[in-house]
C-alpha cells in the first residue's frame, strides 16, 4: 500500500467541482478544497506505485485541474 498527497490548483472557482469529481476515484480516500497556495488536497492510497502513477495521471488530466504536485510516501523497511 502506497500513500500520497496530491496538491491541486484548479481553474478559478472550480475547486468544489474538482474536489467532488476526484472523490469518485476509489484510490482517493479523501479530498477537500483548501485555502492557501493550493485549491484542493487529495489523500491517495494505491496498491503500488504503478497504480498510484495511473491515478495521479488521471487527476492531472481532469477538467478544471491546472497544476498538481504529488508528495509520495517514503516507504521505510517496516512497511
Amino acid at each position: 500500500m502506497v500513500s500520497a498527497c496530491t496538491l491541486i490548483r484548479t481553474e478559478r472557482g472550480r475547486f468544489d467541482e474538482v474536489a467532488s469529481r476526484i472523490k469518485q476515484i476509489p484510490e482517493v480516500k479523501k479530498s477537500f478544497p483548501v485555502f492557501g497556495r493550493y485549491d484542493v488536497v487529495a489523500d491517495l492510497e494505491a496498491k503500488d506505485h504503478n497504480k498510484l502513477n495511473d491515478v495521479v495521471f488521471k487527476l492531472s488530466r481532469m477538467g478544471g485541474v491546472v497544476f498538481t504536485e504529488t508528495l509520495i510516501e517514503l516507504e521505510t523497511e517496516g512497511d
Partner: peptide, 15 residues
C-alpha cells in the same frame, strides 16, 4: 489521522 515521510519539496505530510 495520518502522517508519513514523503519525497518532494516537503519532508512530512500530516492529515
Amino acid at each position: 489521522k495520518k502522517a508519513y515521510f514523503c519525497y518532494g519539496r516537503f519532508d512530512i505530510v500530516v492529515f
